[in-house]
Nucleic acid binder design. Structure first.
Length: 261
DNA sequence: ATGTCAACGAACCGTTGA
């Protein structure tokens, strides 16, 4: 059995819903994590997604942020906040599917390293990491998917010199990312040979996508047990080529297991 | 650094955030 998990920052689910439905139908993931849905819960398109054969769990807010998970089977033990962190912003959702635990995260962007939003990001990340530590204790099969807004290494940046020390690439952010890996999580993308210059986000401006001026900031982290079952991790650039694309591409893993073990 | 995009509120634009 093959299990598929995916993540996609859709930059407005209202605008991207047709693309999301198409992607679900084509790829049939077991779980698709979405970020930046930018919807209040009352406006979540449950029925349209149900018509495509998927259940939804979501945590939205007006205008900004918001996360969701779409899945073939119903999720349980849903959590929509980081324990111990006072945070108005809807950035995480976790659910259990069979014996699989999935966390969907939209890490703060940070704006720039001088910004208060950067300070918030650097407060948010340790709280998130502490939560992951506990989740790893509670669940052997844990997958953490999302927009981390961190490019882990220079090879994840189209121009590392230009971006050196800048937000998404700064030392403190990379260190915070390393702290997650040190818990026993693995960046699934780097389990495999990958094309050079592989990215998941390209600025809308400056024809950045056409020039492949991107960063790899969307990730799928796997616990040891899932890691050993992971067969592929790929970035689906096709969605970024469509009309009215999100600025992020979906990332997808295939695991040699099923939800029903 | 920015040539774009999306949402919002209150005017068909400017602001915010990414």
């Amino acid at each position: 059995m093959v299990m598929k998990l995916a993540t996609w920052n859709v930059n407005s689910l209202k605008v991207r819903l047709p693309q999301v439905i198409d992607w679900l139908v084509e790829h049939q993931p077991d779980v698709l994590c979405l970020q930046e849905i930018k919807l209040i819960n009352e406006n979540f398109p449950i029925n349209e997604i149900k018509a495509a054969g998927y259940e939804s769990v979501f945590s939205g807010q007006k205008t900004y942020n918001g996360v969701a998970m779409l899945s073939k089977r119903q999720g349980s033990n849903i959590v929509t906040a980081i324990p111990g962190l006072a945070d108005e912003q809807k950035r995480v959702i976790a659910a259990t599917y069979g014996d699989l635990r999935v966390i969907c995260a939209y890490v703060p962007n940070g704006e720039n390293v001088e910004s208060e939003k950067y300070e918030y990001k650097l407060r948010w990340l340790p709280a998130f990491t502490q939560w992951l530590k506990q989740e790893l204790i509670d669940y052997k099969r844990l997958a953490v998917l999302g927009d981390f807004n961190i490019a882990p290494e220079d090879r994840d940046v189209y121009d590392a010199e230009l971006w050196k020390g800048k937000v998404l690439c700064s030392g403190p952010e990379r260190s915070a990312f390393g702290n997650m890996l040190n818990l026993g999580l693995t960046d699934s993308f780097r389990l495999f040979e990958q094309p050079e210059k592989s990215y998941t986000w390209w600025d809308y401006r400056m024809m950045a996508f056409r020039r492949n001026q991107g960063l790899r900031i969307d990730h799928i982290l796997l616990s040891e047990e899932l890691c050993s079952a992971c067969m592929t991790c790929t970035i689906d650039k096709t969605m970024r080529k469509l009309d009215r694309p999100s600025d992020h591409a979906p990332v997808l893993v295939e695991l040699a297991c099923s939800l029903d073990i």
